[in-house]
């Protein structure tokens, strides 16, 4: 059984996910009245959530 440790690679992914989320959230909130901005960032945020489920949750567990 070969297991993969939560290493620096996962930490780096999690850090970049945070940055992505900040940017997407900023557009999502700042341009509420522009449907193309609001709806496309809503979809991006859903994808970012999948990244969090795959990586950030695990890292949070390591840090708790």
């Amino acid at each position: 059984m070969h297991t993969m440790p939560v290493d620096s690679e996962a930490k780096e992914i999690a850090r970049l996910i945070d940055e992505l989320k900040k940017t997407a959230l900023e557009i999502h909130e700042k341009f509420r009245s522009v449907p193309a901005a609001r709806r496309n960032t809503a979809r991006i945020l859903a994808s970012i959530k999948m990244l969090e489920l795959n990586f950030s949750d695990l890292l949070a567990l390591d840090e708790s």
Partner: peptide, 17 residues
């Protein structure tokens, strides 16, 4: 590969959270 090869005790901790 991070999630699918987690040691069982770590999977259990993740599941509880």
């Amino acid at each position: 590969p991070f999630l699918e090869t987690l040691p069982p005790e770590k999977i259990r901790s993740l599941q509880l959270e």
